[in-house]
């Protein structure tokens, strides 16, 4: 039953519906998304994370880098909700600040991957067989190297730090976007509206941007959301390895690696940063799945 309108207005003819608002596809999708419980749960979690990311420094109860050596390895309490770390710094404050890093890395990395990957995929799917082969074989090569290992290698070359981490993660996810965009283009490149545009003399770039791109947007939107989840996981892993965010800036991954030596004193140092990563990633995963169901109801299972 899901997906069917609850009531059908008999006065409305099919033509009326066809002549309805131009963006009715997106509005339908939004309606389906709003009814998707897991997606809404994911969105709620993400709103909290985004608020932490935007207002971070203004809402932390303590200075995230402020040390208090009389209060090291504190358990969670009314004063320190998530306890304190090996320098007596408030873990909750550091988690709030860490949200900004995770989101920044996620958005920049996924933007790189989307723009470069989708462009390559569009070109591969739309151009000659040879161009297609060359681009897609190159993508196969990038895909054959495990994501984390490739990211490590790229950061090794470019140098440690948050900016290079963003680029590395972005490069790693280029092939995924290329494949999705290419598959979507292949599905529509022989449709009549494309042929019509070609017949009217539209150039390739114009056709790609005004006719092909809007039609391959939904799988790309879904992949963007799911890739944000992966990007945040990857940033956490790289920072955990000491390649991403550099001290003293807090990042969830780095907090876990700093806590490693002190788990005998305080296991809490290993719990809360992990929970922060987990919930954020889960938020993007739930939202992405919901978007997939909402944008492509045919695929629903």
């Amino acid at each position: 039953m899901a997906g069917l309108p609850a009531t059908v207005d008999p006065r409305k003819s099919k033509t009326d519906e066809a002549l309805g608002p131009a963006n009715t596809l997106w509005r339908d999708a939004l309606r389906r998304l709003l009814r998707h419980h897991l997606a809404m749960f994911g969105a709620a979690v993400l709103i909290i994370v985004v608020v932490m990311g935007i207002f971070g420094p203004a809402i932390t109860p303590y200075d995230p880098n402020g040390m208090d050596f009389s209060n090291r390895f504190g358990n969670p309490s009314m004063q320190h909700w998530m306890g304190t770390d090996d320098f007596g710094r408030d873990i909750f404050s550091r988690i709030i600040i860490g949200a900004r890093v995770s989101l920044q890395v996620g958005f920049v990395a996924v933007s790189v991957a989307t723009i470069v990957g989708a462009s390559l995929g569009l070109v591969a799917g739309y151009s000659t067989r040879l161009t297609d082969e060359v681009i897609m074989r190159a993508m196969d090569v990038l895909y054959a190297i495990p994501a984390i290992l490739l990211a490590i290698a790229i950061v090794a070359v470019l140098g440690k730090g948050i900016g290079n981490t963003m680029i590395a993660i972005g490069i790693v996810y280029i092939p995924i976007f290329a494949r999705i965009a290419r598959a979507a283009v292949l599905g529509i490149r022989n449709e009549e509206f494309i042929i019509a545009a070609q017949a009217m003399g539209a150039g390739d770039i114009r056709i790609l941007l005004t006719h092909v791109l809007p039609n391959v947007l939904s799988p790309i939107i879904v992949e963007i959301t799911l890739s944000l989840a992966f990007a945040i996981l990857a940033e956490a892993a790289l920072s955990f390895f000491g390649l991403g965010t550099q001290p003293p800036d807090p990042s969830w991954g780095r907090m876990l690696s700093e806590g490693r030596d002190f788990f005998r004193q305080s296991g809490w140092m290993g719990v809360f940063p992990g929970l922060a990563i987990f919930f954020t990633v889960m938020g993007f995963n739930f939202l992405g799945d919901g978007l997939r169901d909402a944008l492509d109801p045919k695929l629903r299972r």
Binding site: L256, F263, M282, D289
Partner: peptide, 23 residues
């Protein structure tokens, strides 16, 4: 399966070490 893909691998490893090995 939805929750499992969201667990950071290294975090899960750390938690297992804390609980199974250390505790």
């Amino acid at each position: 399966s939805q929750i499992g893909v969201s667990v950071p691998t290294f975090w899960m490893g750390i938690l297992l070490v804390i609980v199974v090995s250390l505790n």
